[in-house]
C-alpha cells in the first residue's frame, strides 16, 4: 500500500536537488510570451501613431486660435471656424444618452435578470438585445429619421439635437442593458438571501442590495456607451446634422455634433490664402472630442469609485 516507491525514498539529497533544480526548457511558453509581447507592442504603436497624427496638426490651431476655436462657429474659412455648435450638440447628446438610456437600460436589465421567468419568449428577447448591439449605426440613423424626426416630430420638433440624442440613446441601449445585466448577475446570491432572510420584499432587495452592488459594473457600461454615442457620425448624417453654416445653437433648431464637424472638415479643400488648413481644424476638433469623452468618463469613474467603496462597506 505504500504510495511512495522505495527507489524514490532511497534518493540522496544531491539527487533530489538535481531533479528539482533542472532548468526550465519550456520552448512553447517562451514563444507564447514573445507573441503576447508583440501583440501588446503593436497595439501601443497603433495607438501612439494615431494620437501623434491627431495632435501634431491640431497644435497650431490651439496655438493660433486659442479659446476662439472653442467659441467660434462652423463655416468655410479654416482661419475663423470654431467648434462651438459641435461641442454644444455633443454635450447635449451625452446628457441625453445618460438621462434616457441609463434608466431605461437598467430597468430593462433588472426585469430580465430578476423578474422575467426563464421562458422561451424572454430568452428570445435577450438574444435579440444582444443582436441589437451588433447592428451598424447607420441603421439606427434610419430608425431615428423615421421615429424621432418623423413620428415624434411634435416632441422633437424635427431635425434637432433632441432627435439626435434620442437616436443615439436607443443606439447604446443594448450595450447598457447587456453590461447592466451582467453586473446584476454578478451580485452574490448570499447577499440577496440575506435581504430576503430579514423579510425584505423583492423590490426592497433590488433597491437596497442588488443595485448598489451592481452600480460599479453599470457605470462601466455607461462609460462604454457614452464613448460610443459621442463618436458616432453616421446616424447624425441621416438625421440631418448641419455641416454648412450654423450661427446659433438651440435645442429645437438645426444642430450639429463634433463627429459631424470632423467628418465635414476632413473632406473640405483648404482655401488658398488661409494659414490653417481644414485638416488642422479637423484634427483639433478630434482632440476636443477626445477631451469631451474624457470629461464624461472622469465623472463616471468618480461615481464608480464611490459606489465601489460602498460595496465593500466603507
Amino acid at each position: 500500500m505504500a504510495l511512495v516507491s522505495p527507489s524514490i525514498k532511497a534518493t540522496t539529497q544531491a539527487q533530489v536537488r538535481a531533479s528539482i533544480t533542472r532548468r526550465d526548457r519550456n520552448i512553447g511558453g517562451l514563444v507564447l510570451y514573445v507573441l503576447l509581447l508583440i501583440a501588446v507592442a503593436t497595439t501601443l504603436l497603433v495607438l501612439f501613431t494615431l494620437l501623434a497624427r491627431l495632435f501634431a496638426p491640431a497644435l497650431p490651431v490651439f496655438r493660433d486660435r486659442g479659446l476662439s476655436f472653442f467659441t467660434g462657429t462652423i463655416g468655410s474659412n479654416p482661419d475663423k471656424v470654431g467648434i462651438w455648435p459641435g461641442l454644444y450638440g455633443s454635450f447635449i447628446i451625452g446628457i441625453g444618452v445618460i438621462v434616457v438610456s441609463i434608466p431605461l437600460g437598467v430597468a430593462a436589465a433588472i426585469y430580465l435578470e430578476d423578474y422575467a421567468q426563464n421562458r422561451w419568449y424572454n430568452r428570445l428577447i435577450v438574444i435579440n438585445i444582444r443582436n441589437l448591439a451588433g447592428i451598424p449605426a447607420v441603421i439606427y440613423g434610419i430608425l431615428g429619421l423615421t421615429i424621432f424626426v418623423g413620428w415624434l416630430e411634435p416632441l422633437t420638433t424635427g431635425k434637432t439635437v433632441i432627435a439626435a440624442a434620442l437616436t443615439l440613446a436607443v443606439l447604446v441601449l443594448p450595450i447598457v442593458i447587456i453590461t447592466a445585466t451582467e453586473a446584476i448577475r454578478s451580485v452574490p446570491q448570499g447577499l440577496r438571501d440575506a435581504g430576503y432572510g430579514v423579510g425584505a420584499s423583492k423590490w426592497e432587495v433590488t433597491r437596497d442590495h442588488v443595485l448598489p452592488y451592481a452600480a460599479p459594473g453599470i457605470l462601466t457600461g455607461t462609460v462604454l456607451s457614452l464613448a460610443r454615442a459621442l463618436g458616432e457620425a453616421a446616424p447624425l448624417i441621416l438625421i440631418g446634422a448641419i455641416t454648412g453654416l450654423l450661427p446659433a445653437t438651440s435645442l429645437d433648431g438645426p444642430f450639429t455634433a463634433l463627429p459631424m464637424t470632423i467628418y465635414s472638415w476632413s473632406s473640405k479643400a483648404t482655401p488658398p490664402k488661409s494659414v490653417l488648413g481644414f485638416d488642422n481644424v479637423a484634427a483639433a476638433a478630434g482632440v476636443a472630442l477626445l477631451l469631451l469623452v474624457l470629461v464624461f468618463n472622469i465623472i463616471a469613474v468618480i461615481f464608480r469609485n464611490r459606489f465601489e467603496k460602498q460595496r465593500i462597506g466603507l
Binding site: 452574490p188 435581504g195 423579510g199
Partner: peptide
Amino acid sequence: VRRRIGMVFQKPNPFPKSIYDNVAYG
C-alpha cells in the same frame, strides 16, 4: 412569513454596510 421566521445562512453574509446598519436594516 420571512419576517416571523428568520434565517442564518451557511456562509456568513453581512450586508456591505456598517455593523449598525446591518442590524437596523430589518
